[in-house]
Design a protein around this nucleic acid. Structure first.
Lengths: 160, 160
DNA sequence: TGATTTTATCTTGACGTCAAGAGAATCTCT
DNA sequence: AGAGATTCTCTTGACGTCAAGATAAAATCA
């Protein structure tokens, strides 16, 4: 009988005409994600980052040398709008973690590159971020993680 | 080989020293939640609501007659800060969906009540919201839903 | 009773996000 | 070559959220 169960019980009493079973799964997913996001923000804050800025730096870092992508590339992998990405890049540029330059092959386009400072920071941040992720999953067994990951993969497949 | 798998493959190439396995599960959870949240916002928008305002109205509605709770009660169930709740209540009051009144037993406290208009709207909205939730889960079998819900319940238990 | 602490709500200021649209460059197709 | 469609990025304005602090009332306890 967790928090979500209590919500379902209330709906069953007040609106017995509704089959609210899916609300349990979706509610738990949403609440869980909120808790996890807060934990992750806390860990990244120790490096002066939030998950928004980290996502951009991490996408550049894992793309490999020369650590350059266009804003459009970054938008495609991060699920944010172009306005959001412009804002993120503005902040990161101001902080000296990325640099913008023109793309000589397409003058509409911009090249975003990790600066040495950005590269060093993201390497440090990702190490502790991954350690934090291990901690967040520590109470799930190997089998449980595999089962959960498999179900999430299938579910996510419905949307992308 | 989904989007998240590609991210993990990149990290394995660029940072083979890291065990990024947890990132798969957590990444899928985060992406899935983003997709689901967008679908849910779309459905609620048809009633002039967003998930923030719906959550408040729904919490009042399912609490049962007389459909009254304090802001503190609402904060406790919705995982938002007091500032956020004040803002939500301001919007809902302006829209005529809830009304504020003083609690005669504790003058620090406020009573938030669903207006008839708010009550009618949330009853309509929750019906289509639940139908939408059924749609979002339609590609998962009964067994898969039960397994996923069970794992999410256990995982969520680590945080609340 | 009176001083202190706690509780409940609201205010303020900053931040991240998005939708809509603008501006500039490239592509397509005749 | 030229016109129109498309692509890429940035700008603007609105919104939701939070942390920190203000305000007011109630509870605690000397």
């Amino acid at each position: 009988m967790d928090h979500v169960d209590r919500i379902l019980a209330q709906w069953n009493r007040e609106r017995p005409d509704l089959d609210v079973e899916p609300m349990g799964l979706l509610g738990r997913l949403a609440r869980l994600r909120t808790h996890l996001a807060r934990e992750i923000e806390k860990a990244l804050a120790e490096h002066g980052l939030n998950s928004a800025s980290f996502d951009v730096l991490a996408t550049l870092r894992r793309s490999g040398p020369p650590y350059r992508l266009s804003p459009g590339d970054l938008i495609a992998t991060t699920m944010v709008s172009s306005g959001t990405m412009t804002n993120r890049l503005d902040q990161l540029e101001k902080a000296g973690l990325i640099a913008r330059s023109h793309n000589p092959d397409d003058r509409r386009s911009v090249i975003i590159a990790l600066t040495p400072k950005g590269s060093a920071l993201v390497d440090e941040a990702v190490t502790s971020h991954v350690a934090n992720q291990h901690r967040l999953l520590e109470n799930l067994s190997t089998d449980e993680r595999a089962a959960l990951d498999g179900l999430l993969r299938k579910f996510l497949g419905d949307f992308e």
